[in-house]
Design a protein around this nucleic acid. Structure first.
Length: 399
DNA sequence: AAGACTTACAACCGCATTTGG
DNA sequence: GCCAAATGCGGTTGTAAGTCT
């Protein structure tokens, strides 16, 4: 299907916006709202395409945008969320109130990425370079990068599911508390400890050492003989198992991972070529239905933030929340396909699941004791992630 | 002082996804 | 269900400002 240009290119201005143009755009939107972006330029007497107007508004002119230097906390948030989410700037931006995805992306590319690199940390994997598997061979590097991407996706999935389980277990939020998502969530509760937490400590230390708390002291971090106490970052079990994954399950998981829309989840899940998904308590479809925001259990959830400006804000919240729920559903599909790949079927982790499916079950509690070492070890990590999520001033439901 | 180089970031491009007729 | 428009998103580019030589 051919794609028509977003606007008539001829006669439309490009490049930096002038104050007059800004004024016209702001005045029009304040008076009428943006409505259709495509129709806006003509109505606002602007020689710009609608897309350009939209970008100018969302990235620069919107009144609820904070500009200026990023704080230490903002930097740490970006780093931590980037370790979880990768280059998903819009998702990261929802945790940084008044910062746009474009601004965060630029800041990452021009500041944070370089600093991490100077610290000897791979900004893609968030792991120290020249570690145990840093052989330098291109093939290995590619594998590591690939595995890191999957690991990142998995961490993201787990964070979402844990959050979902929190919601599901909160009776004040759910009129009908459904155990399904909890079961699925608990199934994902044993991630490897990420190195980013140590990185953040170093980051904070560098800020603290900084004389004026404004200039980052890279010199403190550059020495190859630094005493920086990075984790050893052993190859995660899941990553090791990655290469052993059945190709069918891998392909299903890959497809699921790409999915973000509910309709496509249906298509994929309902398709006859689905080659996995029989080893979880709830199928992706079932979980997706549970995650449907129109379902009674989720409909009662109130929006968690609002802003001046009326309906548009609420729509954003609703959309964000809906996206989060569909992501939970897609993750359920992923879990179907990845349970083998990422080792959820391994003894200790499934034990953890069993431990938490029924907290009142004494057998399971004892299982928790015996198998819960890893679970407990990672509890702090997840507390950190959840604190980060829940501490968002906007309280926005990103996951 | 001037040209080369670097940095920072606004803006653009194009693909993916969603929406509505 | 199909199609085109609208919108979202991430990667990339262009350029002004700052710094270096």
């Amino acid at each position: 299907m051919g794609r028509s240009p977003c606007c008539e290119k001829i006669g439309l201005k490009k490049g930096p916006w002038t104050p007059e143009e800004d004024q016209k755009l702001v005045a029009y939107i304040e008076q009428h709202g943006h409505g259709s972006w495509r129709a806006l330029p003509a109505k606002a007497d602007l020689q710009r395409c609608g897309k350009s107007c939209r970008l100018r508004w969302t990235n620069y002119l919107r009144p609820d945008i904070k500009r200026g230097k990023f704080s230490l906390q903002e930097e740490q948030t970006i780093i931590q969320l980037h370790a979880l989410l990768g280059n998903r700037w819009s998702a990261i931006a929802t945790h940084l109130p008044k910062r746009t995805d474009n601004e965060i992306k630029n800041y990452w590319n021009t500041h944070l990425k370089k600093r991490l690199a100077k610290m000897g940390i791979d900004p893609v994997t968030h792991k120290p370079r020249n570690d145990a598997f840093g052989s330098g061979h291109a093939k290995d590097t590619a594998n590591i990068s690939h595995m890191a991407q999957w690991e990142s996706a998995r961490l993201e999935a787990e964070a979402r599911l844990v959050r979902e389980s929190k919601l599901a277990s909160n009776p004040s939020c759910h009129s009908n508390n459904q155990p399904g998502s909890l079961v699925v969530a608990q199934k994902a509760m044993a991630p490897p400890p990420p190195p980013c937490l140590d990185i953040l400590n170093v980051w904070q230390s560098a800020w603290t050492k900084s004389s004026d708390n404004v200039t980052f002291q890279l010199d403190d971090l550059e020495s190859p003989t630094s005493t920086l106490n990075f984790l050893d970052s052993p190859m995660p079990k899941s990553a090791v198992r990655f290469n052993q994954a059945p190709s069918g399950a891998l392909e299903t998981a890959r497809k699921s991972m790409m999915i973000s829309g509910e309709r496509q989840i249906f298509k994929q899940d309902g398709g006859s070529n689905s080659s996995s998904g029989n080893n979880t308590n709830y199928s992706g479809r079932e979980c997706m239905e549970k995650a449907d925001p129109t379902s009674p259990g989720l409909r009662g959830l109130p929006p968690t933030f609002s802003k001046e400006g009326g309906d548009g804000a609420w729509v954003e919240v609703e959309d964000s929340f809906r996206a989060g729920q569909s992501d939970v559903a897609s993750i359920a599909l992923v879990m179907d396909g990845l349970s083998e790949i990422f080792g959820y079927g391994c003894t200790d982790q499934t034990s953890s699941v069993a431990c938490h499916e029924n907290p009142n079950n004494s057998t399971n509690n004892s299982a928790n004791t015996s198998c819960g070492g890893e679970f407990e070890e990672n509890k702090n990590y997840w507390d950190s992630i959840l604190n980060l999520v829940s501490a968002s001033p906007a309280g926005s439901p990103v996951f």
